[in-house]
């Protein structure tokens, strides 16, 4: 029981101080999980990072689940995950309440008007990152054009056309997964 509480508090701390999302949570998790409690080795920590590149979900949730399940089984993963989202629930609901109460007040409108194009830019940045990862299996520029994964480009183009045909999002994702399985298997190329 004590260990569950410890997991909850530990990951609530990570959730509370993890601002800027994604990779920003890694040093915090490292500090709590490796250095403070010794729940994971550095090697296992790097493994979580690798898993998070391939599995759904934010890296913070993935880390919480992985650590919790290693330390205390399924109750541990639930406790750690609940801890991680707890500060978010409280703070975001408070902000949501303020937005719907005062959202149209000039100054708050101004702030949100300033943030809107910024959000577009941040999504664009994620777009570039994921494009590099998909086509070249690299996270940052520069890339070697000769090393382009042609099958990845093909699936990308096919999805793009399917998108213009107004196919639903979920169907698109499932069929691009199946396409990946088929194309890589048929050509014998390794993704």
């Amino acid at each position: 029981m004590e260990i569950l509480l410890q997991l909850f508090i530990s990951f609530a701390t990570v959730g509370l101080f993890c601002v800027g999302g994604g990779y920003a949570s890694m040093p915090l998790i490292q500090a709590e999980v490796i250095e403070k409690y010794g729940w994971l080795s550095m090697n296992e920590f790097v493994d979580i990072f690798t898993i998070s590149q391939m599995t759904p979900g934010p890296i913070g949730i993935n880390a919480a689940t992985f650590v919790g399940s290693k330390v205390a089984g399924i109750p541990g993963s639930v406790a750690a995950t609940a801890g991680f989202v707890f500060p978010s629930v409280v703070i975001v609901l408070l902000l949501a309440y303020l937005y719907y109460k005062y959202g149209n007040v000039g100054s708050i409108r101004g702030i949100l008007n300033g943030l809107r194009p910024a959000v577009v830019a941040l999504i664009a940045r994620a777009g570039v990152d994921i494009l590099l990862l998909a086509f070249w299996n690299k996270e940052k520029l520069p890339v070697d054009i000769m090393q382009t994964d042609k099958i990845a480009v093909l699936i990308f183009v096919l999805t793009w056309f399917a998108l213009k045909k107004k196919l639903g999002t979920i169907k698109l994702l499932a069929s691009s997964g199946v396409a990946g399985l088929l194309f890589y298997m048929l050509t014998g190329i390794q993704p």
Partner: peptide, 21 residues
């Protein structure tokens, strides 16, 4: 096989994301 499926999905997500952007 898991990697092939995930790789395909990654390309699909890329197309959707860039379209939204």
């Amino acid at each position: 096989y898991v990697r092939m499926f995930l790789k395909g999905m990654q390309c699909g997500v890329t197309a959707i994301l860039l379209d939204v952007v």
